[in-house]
Design a protein around this nucleic acid. Sequence first.
DNA 1: CTAGGGTTAG
Length: 754
Amino acid sequence: MASLPSVVVGNTVKLDRQFKKLTPSSLSLQNRNFNPKESDKSALDPFNLDFREALTLIQEGNTKVESSFYVPILQECIEKNSVSDVQALHAHVIKRGSYQDLFLMTFLVNVYAKCGTMESAQKVFDNLPARNVVTWTSLMSGYVYNSHPHLAISVFKEMLEIGGYPTNFTLGIILNACSSLCDIELGKHIHAYIIKYGIEYDASIGNALCSFYSKCGSLDMAFKAFSRIGEKNVISWTAIISACGDNGDSAMGLDMFVQMLSEGVDPNEFTVTSVLSLCCIIQALGFGTQVHSLSLKLGYGSQIPVTNSIMYLYLKNGCINEAKKLFDGMNTISLVTWNAMIAGHSQMMDLGQDGISTHFSGIEALKIFQRMKRSGVKPDLYTFSSILTVCSNLVALEQGEQFHAQTIKTGFLSDVVVGTALVNMYNKCGSIVRASRAFVEMSARTLISWTSMITAFTQHGLCQQALQLFEDMRLVGVRPNKITFVGVLSACSQAGMVDEALAYFELMKNEYKINPVMDHYACLIDMFVRLGQIEQAFEFIKKMDFMPSEFIWSILIAGCRSHGKLELGFYAAEQLLDLKPKDPETYFLLLNMYFSASRWKDVSRVRKLMKDEKIGKLKDWSWISIRNKVFSFNPDYQLSQEGELKKLLEDLQERARILGYQLQANLEVIDDEEETTSLPAHHSEKLAVAYGLLNTSNGRQIRVVKSISMCRDCHNFIKFISVLTSRTIIVRDSKRLHKFFNGNCSCGDFGSLL
DNA sequence: CTAGGGTTAG
């Protein structure tokens, strides 16, 4: 680092005015601080003129004006983002000789920067008669503002070389540059410099350090930087609150918010939006609602970002009506508002709601997209990634293809998130070929892109490709996370590669220091179960340092049922019942197990528990999307009115029987005390598949999405259909993707627990 | 004259 002082100070013309930022309305008001010479006053008082008039006067007049005259007009140029007006004023400044005024010229650097024309800002800077630390800092700030952090840093180094001495402002700006570059090295260097030279640790330094460490992923250091600030201002608090959110500790962020209020600091609109986004992450609707009313009290109700984030919070929590009310009440609907609406609808599925509301909110999201386009708003990358996700959820391939085309036309495909969303869309719509093409064509890939593609191969039963891609990913130096390992372990599980699975499990723990989560154990247990090694699976459950979840016991029970291990199955069922499962499907798994073992007492015990826990019937819906239209089916579908559909199903059933298909009965509907065994051969996906067969041309893929898991019988039957019709049939149920082709399914036949 | 914070994505 450069040695201290030797500040370059130009012959700064001191002006005795205070230049506060002027709003357009304040321009027309008399400013008490403005006190021009009498001679200028009558003709050229910018505070008595409107913008255009002032500009015209300046351009026509030959009078020399004071430097301060330009400032409010230039301010307005920033607001209007009018570079040409800035250039006109600049020309005038040169002609009238005010270019000697370092104060004014520094301001001009900032004006050009704020208008996004850094070339001009740099040119003004280069021609300055003298430079001081403020002019240097202005240039750096311009480069950071225009997303050229590396250029800001080279200006910084240049300044140090000629002996310039950075101030708190300078260091704050450079720390920001480090944040956006994730340049940990330089950031720490700056921090050391601050300590070494005893730079006063004020809020500007503390806030910048706090954000810097947060963006580098060290919440600990962010907290240290924060706590050293003597007088914490709103920005300090907002910085630490967002730091918590960015580093995965949203609950802590809410704590900090409470602490901030208790210390008597009022949040501003930025704080409110940050807090609301934390509420979104951890689904803290109640807290968010309180924050919302607080923000109304503080007068931020008309702030668009505040409304956007509360609307998004409502949507993510399924409060569609509240969200709609806010949306309808907004007088300015920004692109972000549309995006929040679309993203909110596309994400309602994360609520643990059934697949039916997910489906309808997806359809709603498509409608919102159309409304947005009709209103003349152009979609951006956020819109496209959300809408592609909607297509994934709906298994709406044709729609997805159209959006793909639009991303190409608009150039947003080059965005890595859009590209990743596209990979996911093709995968979830059952097209692994196009998914991998989209992946290969990406110009850049994030960890999430790699993970998506690995998971895609796994879901399509292409385990070798999944593992190969994982190795490629490591070769190019991308560090896997726990989700990547779920994909890897699940690939091994499907392929029955026990040794590899265990080796990857160790690799994850030892080399990547990732603590296993339930999903990893579930993969391994699933693997043993698939291989029929039920005892090993059970041993593994006993050995793991986790309380087995509902899902783990379900896998074991399904395995016990398939492999006739009744006693262990009953034991597991007791464990499962103790957990008071949440997922309705789990109860049906138990019912079916007891039913097939003729344990009637247990059947009624489970039924009673279901009543106590208010578990309703399973809502069996399937949808098929053909040429942008969605058709819905459930078991109540009136087949008699559709002679063709009924005939087709009967015909397929008969031909399947000849090939060896046998109907497996399941306990289906629990209607109070009444129970029926299912004979209707017509779960919703059979109807949807048959409808697809009738309404698409021969050889085309059939793509169906279903609200709950497939039952074994349907799973088996559709394998036969794929043989009888030579079609590829994709059914995405609530748990996984099934791609049926030539009598096989990509899930490796252990995909249906029910 | 130079800053610091925010909404929507996989």
